[in-house]
Amino acid sequence: MELGPYLILASLEGAVTAAVLALTAVGLSLVFGVMRVVNIAHGEFFMLGAVIAWWIAHSMGGHPALGFAVALVVAPLVVGAIAVAADMTILKRLDYDPERTIVATIGLLYIIQQLTLMTYGPEARPVEAPFNTRLAIPWFENGENGWQMIWPWGLGTTSYKLAVIGAAMTVLLGVWVLMKRTRIGLVMRATQTDREMALAFGIPVERIYALVFGLGAALAALAAVLIVPIQQAHYLMGGDPLLLSFIVVIIGGLGSLPGTVLAAILIGLSDGIISVFFSPTLAKILATLLVGLVLVFKPGGLTGSSGK
């Protein structure tokens, strides 16, 4: 068997990882960029998205696509609302102090995690994908009858995985349009550049912060809803996305959205390919090594203009 089909498979798996990772990391990056808050609880917002998606799909019944569609809209909204509440009751009172918010979000992490354990329980529960057609991966082989297309046995992906990639790209495009082409995006970018001057020009910074924190959490929740038919919902599932998001955000350049997406693709694809050919642990080792190298040689990230 040739290497080609396996490479395609690994790239597809990597692209799914990259898509979900990009959504999660962009949420983290947005919050850090605009608010200068390092949100350690970001992974728990991801987990909440998955758990709420299971809960909705479970209690709705009927065709799986129906429950999933509702979850896709409701879970990010609920998680976003929880994040806004956390912002207004906790972060705002700490005056968004960079160090104290780190401690506060660590606390938030445990509160969300343990509350989920107490209510949802320790089980991992699946959500059925709305559609899940198996697609074989085609390959070309030079056989007896010259070049022909074959479908190597056992190698395939699903229509749902392709849809995850498409959905993530659409949402990321939406975030880009929001930031670059709308008034609220302009206000967010002004707040990001200079909080004090934003205030001096009538921008209600506290409201913008609440909105951004909610949006960041909602993006993580959305990513989780997309991945939960592939991965299952579990109360400890927030750890990996948090770590990988931090890796991606640091490599991409703190607060830079294009850099974050680029780094997510880099880390996601390499994670997929290395996991298939070698081992998932090696993929994590290499990603962490890359972060170290970036921090040493290019502290501003790959797209960062300076080490500021």
Partner: peptide
Amino acid sequence: VPQGRRLFTGL
């Protein structure tokens, strides 16, 4: 008009 201008850079 603050000292050091403090424009919204990037905009």
